[in-house]
Design a binder for these strands. Structure first.
Length: 423
RNA sequence: GGAGAGGUGCUCGAGUGGUUGAAGAGGUACGCCUGGAAAGCGUAUAUACUCCUAAAGGGUAUCGCGGGUUCGAAUCCCGCCCCCUCCGCCA
């Protein structure tokens, strides 16, 4: 969330910038400003009363020591009154603080100045393209048919044991998954990311830390018995590693990578978007996360985008990078680049990675700070990106590389799969 | 899951009702000393909120978390969380 300080000091600017995300901030920002004033007011009053109580307590202690019991009792009565007042003020302060946070979590992150205007996906700007779109024969099969033909993925079996969106990978299909995970992790390691194996279930505090809670509660699987959530992405546990942490300035940037299964309820999805591997409830992903000094975060964002590009290049997939417009960028992001690969049999672009700079928006919730040379603390900037999400990569690999002989595996992947063709 | 023991600052560790935001030690930083270093000596070393135009300097809160008792709580009481030991179960 945005800091109250920034909002109150730059109210008009904040409202103007939020407009790009099609968020009307006028009313809510005004409320934040007035609530904050109220909060400060209560805080000051409360502090004064408590100071008085503390002072009296010391005096009472002295009086008791000197045996002046009557005087002490007189002061006791005074503190009783003050205490009454402080209780009330403290309750009011609590209400104001909670109300303020309730408002703050409803305000999205400010988009970076380079975020293009636009309503939705159609207004995203294509930054860069690469790879070759293959020309497939007329009888080319979509990946769900290929998966069946070569017995790689069994969707029906998944339905039986879990439900739709939980595919069962088999044989070379399963091996391909394992190879891709290994391929992505090896590359991330080589690029200087520290490999992490995080828990797949997290507590509510972690959900709040990265912003899945409270607003996206319905998108996560919730184990109510233990009040734990299945992670929708490794971003959640990995970023929360740095919750309530004060880092040393010289430790920045922190570079972590993690493979995890990801669990998403995807309530409300339907149609061709969910066919085959296009949208699943459980899928595999390798994530990269960086915690960086605010001065360097955009430089880092570019490096992360460049890094992801090396992956799609090695996999010899046709790709394009989109700069997301104000209407399509996520609630918490300041600037996002999406990677899409072309799935040649479906003849559509599929999103396989999303690389974002959250600036201090996440860090403020996480209370992830760093200490500068002069011992002041500042919020870090957090960034993350998929590198990458497997299912759609698999979809594109299967479709684009189909030949009469079988499905060819890209050279860079062969050392990881141990085979160069699926037939 | 059952029983017992515990959770104090960057770390260790003292502290069972009152100048304890917290002794002492270690670590770290800076200074002195030194040709340089070590040792030694000195100083500093939490976070958040708030008052103040700002700095300086005040105030408030925080000794796992939340509540209670009390004029006053790290210290007493209750609930929760975590951790260690033993037992049970178990990949």
């Amino acid at each position: 969330m945005l800091t109250t300080k920034y909002i109150t000091e730059n109210a008009d600017d904040v409202i103007a910038r939020l407009a790009k995300k099609h968020f009307d901030g006028k009313g809510i920002i005004a409320k934040v400003v007035s609530l904050d004033t109220l909060r400060k007011n209560k805080q000051t009053q409360l502090d004064e009363i408590l100071a008085e109580v503390n002072g009296l307590s010391k005096i009472i202690g002295e009086l008791f020591k000197q045996g002046k019991k009557e005087e002490a009792d007189a002061s006791k009565e005074k503190t009783a009154l003050l205490k009454e007042k402080s209780k009330q003020l403290s309750a009011e302060l609590d209400v104001a603080e909670k109300a303020l946070v309730d408002l703050l979590v409803q305000i999205p992150n400010l988009p970076h100045s380079s975020v293009p205007e636009g309503k939705g996906a159609e207004d995203n700007i294509v930054e860069k393209m690469g790879g070759l779109i293959p020309t497939l024969p007329a009888n080319a099969l979509p990946h769900w048919d290929l998966a069946k033909k070569y017995d790689l993925i069994d969707f029906e079996l998944g339905v039986k044991i879990s439900g739709a969106g939980f595919p069962v990978y088999k044989g070379k299909g399963a091996q391909l998954q394992r190879a891709l995970i290994s391929f992505f992790l090896s590359n991330a390691n080589a690029a200087g990311y520290l490999e992490i194996q995080p828990p797949y279930v997290v507590n509510a505090a972690s959900g709040y830390g990265t912003g899945q809670l409270p607003d996206k509660e319905g998108q996560m699987y919730h184990c109510t018995v233990d009040d734990l959530y299945l992670i929708p992405t490794a971003e959640v546990p990995v970023t929360n590693l740095y919750r309530d942490v004060i880092l040393n300035e010289k430790d920045l940037p922190i570079k972590n990578t993690a493979y995890s299964a990801c669990f998403r309820r995807e309530a409300g999805s339907y149609g061709k978007d969910v066919r085959g591997l296009n949208r699943l409830h459980q899928f595999d992903k390798v994530e990269i996360v960086q915690i960086q000094h605010p001065d360097k975060s955009y430089e880092t964002l570019q490096q992360m985008v460049d890094y992801v590009q090396t992956l799609v290049d090695k996999l010899e997939l046709p790709w394009r990078i989109l700069r997301l417009c104000g209407g399509d960028i996520s609630f918490t992001s300041a600037l996002t680049f999406d990677f899409e690969v072309y799935s040649a049999a479906q003849q559509r672009w599929l999103e396989v990675s999303s690389v974002s700079n959250f600036e201090s928006y996440q860090a403020n919730r996480l209370k992830c700070r760093f200490r500068t040379g002069d011992k002041k603390t500042n919020l870090c900037h957090t960034l993350n990106g998929s590198a990458m999400a497997l299912p759609r990569i698999v979809a594109a690999l299967l479709e684009n590389n189909q030949t009469p002989e079988g499905i060819k595996i890209p050279k860079a992947l062969v050392p990881f799969t141990g085979f160069d063709i699926i037939n």
